[in-house]
Simulated assay, not measured.
Amino acid sequence: MRQRCASKSNHAFRREPHTMARAKPITGLDSQAATGVNARIIARIRLEELYSWSQYVDNPYNVRELHNMRIAAKRLRYTFEVFEEVLPEASRAIVKELTHIQDELGALHDSDVMIALLRLCLGSQDSGAAYEEALLDTKKYESKKGFALPADLVTDLLEPGVAPTAEERYGLERMLLKQQQQREEQYSAFRQHWYELQARDFRREILSILDAY
């Protein structure tokens, strides 16, 4: 039987919207120029936007910044896909790498959400306000493959003042440990991939493609 839990603070359940970083404004477009010219301008701006987040790669606890890096990679990828017909064929390989980066950071973000959710269920105070909005929208994450907590159980566990049973707590703690270990592996894989790209000067590679006509 669940008991009232006085240690759970209402602060942990305050709904604060998590806003992604705004896209960098596109400037310098020429309405008289060919589509390919403007496509390259947009792609260069999106490339700089992606690399503006690279300073946060070495710290695995930069949760919000790594999430924004994923969004930046997606924006750059979409730019290449939308303008595929007016960009060099070599840009297709860039799209594959950007998709890989996006997938890696997406998996990392999913783990961050799950970890924060498990901490909330356990009554932790350090789950991070940035994710509370997403965590409380449990139906969204329940539909994802690998989401292990039923939405009804999550809603019950997140009720302020209600503590999980001893059996539930044991299961949640085991899941939290497993998810944290998986998150470490995901971060290590992403960081290694990112530095492999930098070793071959991925940024210069993209700029060279954009410079070609």
Rank of each mutant, 00 (worst) to 15 (best):
R2P: 15
C5T: 08
A6Y: 13
A6I: 11
K8G: 01
N10Q: 10
T19C: 10
M20Y: 12
R22E: 09
P25F: 00
I26S: 05
G28E: 01
S31P: 12
Q32L: 14
T35H: 08
I41D: 03
I41T: 15
A43E: 06
A43I: 02
E49N: 04
L50V: 06
Y51C: 07
V57R: 13
Y61K: 14
V63H: 11
V63R: 15
L66M: 02
T79Q: 07
E85K: 12
A90T: 13
E97M: 04
H100N: 09
I101C: 08
E104W: 05
M114V: 03
M114G: 05
A116T: 13
L117G: 09
L122E: 00
G123H: 01
A130N: 04
E132Y: 14
L135D: 00
L135F: 00
Y141N: 13
E142G: 06
E142A: 06
K144A: 09
P150H: 00
D152Q: 13
Q179K: 14
Q181G: 10
Q182N: 13
Q182C: 10
R183N: 14
E184S: 12
E185Y: 09
A189Y: 07
L197Y: 09
R203E: 12
E205C: 06
S208T: 12
S208F: 15
L210Q: 06
Y213A: 11
